Amino acid sequence: MDGFELTQPVFKSYVLPNAPLEKLAEGFRWVEGPVWFADRDELLFSDLPNNRVMRWSQSGGLSIYRQDGDFENGHARDRQGRLLSCSHRGRRIHRTELDGTVTALVERYRGKRLNSPNDIVCKSDGTIWFSDPPYGIQTDYEGGKQDSELPAAVYRFDPRDGTLTVVADDFQGPNGLCFSPDERRLYIVETGLQFATDPVQHVRAFDVSEDGRLSGGQIFCTIHPGNADGIRCDEHGNLWSSAGDGVHCIDPGGELVGKIRVPSTVANLTFGGRNNSRLFLCASHSVYAIYVNVRGAVVL
């Protein structure tokens, strides 16, 4: 099967030989943070070093959604359909209201500024979970050099009462994160220290209690070539991860099921499109899409 690598037989049922990889747009500096808006039938994603958020739709093509948004990286939608964004230069989580205004949600923890929030997910109870490595304030390329005030960590924010809690702090560089379909497991990517010669890089799996606490945290898988960055789960609980050679599909036991080969390094991905079965890929300077025979996990 051209463009696919089958490691386990089941992967053959997930991919479609007559649905090739498509390039939707190109000419960016480094694309990140894809999020699908099914009610608007459009994809939003960040052209991070160019400090803009882009919009793509099948009918309308490519346009700029927001320019000069304080270097936004990861995005998600909350339970009311509003856009949640991670700002590098603003060092915060902000929300775009339905009327287009922007509201700052989280900027500090115990009086100190966050580093540069990277990736974000919204749980079915409305709580917002995000990673906060220092990557965005270590260079001028993705936000601008600033001093770090807090160690890298993963946070849980409850917009109902404004509480902000550290749920994991034993990371050097927490990055992408996503819940399993039943939300009993949280996957978190460790991409290590940015300029290290041999950074620690793997995906860890945590058990999630009803009150939002995490336990476990064992290594779930390691992605090679390259490393994991953005991740998403499908309806069967498989983890789809970005990689140096494309997209890797990992089963719930941590074993590689198969790969979708992509011409450039994939940084992030999301499910969307008709029936939530189109995989959108942010890959270096371009955005790709491919239809697959599996649906993205739906938040409960």
Rank of each mutant, 00 (worst) to 15 (best):
K12H: 10
Y14I: 01
Y14P: 07
P17C: 12
E22T: 11
K23H: 00
A25I: 00
W30M: 01
W30T: 04
E32H: 06
E32G: 05
E32V: 08
P34E: 10
W36S: 02
R40C: 04
L43G: 01
F45Y: 08
D47Y: 05
L48N: 12
N50P: 00
N50Q: 10
R52Q: 15
V53T: 05
R55N: 10
W56F: 03
G60V: 02
L62I: 14
S63F: 02
R66P: 03
D68W: 01
G69C: 13
F71N: 09
E72M: 14
N73L: 12
Q80Y: 02
Q80N: 01
S85Y: 04
S87H: 11
G90P: 06
R91L: 02
R91T: 03
I93C: 02
H94P: 04
T101F: 06
V106N: 15
R113Y: 01
P117M: 13
N118Q: 06
N118E: 03
V121H: 07
T127F: 14
I128A: 08
W129E: 09
W129M: 06
D132Y: 15
E142S: 06
E142C: 07
G144A: 09
G144E: 10
K145Q: 09
K145H: 03
D147S: 10
A152S: 15
A153T: 01
R156F: 05
D158V: 06
L164C: 00
V166P: 07
D169C: 14
D170H: 15
D170W: 15
Q172K: 08
G173V: 05
N175A: 05
L177I: 09
E190N: 13
T191L: 13
L193N: 02
Q194P: 10
T197K: 00
D198R: 08
V200E: 14
Q201S: 12
F206V: 11
S209D: 13
S209L: 03
E210P: 10
E210W: 14
D211Q: 09
G212T: 06
G212A: 03
R213M: 12
L214N: 04
Q218N: 11
Q218R: 15
C221H: 06
T222N: 04
P225T: 09
E235D: 10
E235T: 11
N238R: 10
L239Q: 12
W240K: 00
V247F: 02
G254H: 11
G254Y: 13
E255D: 15
G258F: 14
G258S: 13
K259C: 07
K259E: 06
I260W: 09
V262T: 07
V262I: 05
P263C: 00
A267C: 13
L269N: 07
L269Q: 04
T270D: 12
N275S: 15
L281Q: 04
H285Q: 07
S286T: 14
Y288P: 14
A289Y: 14
N293P: 07
A297W: 12
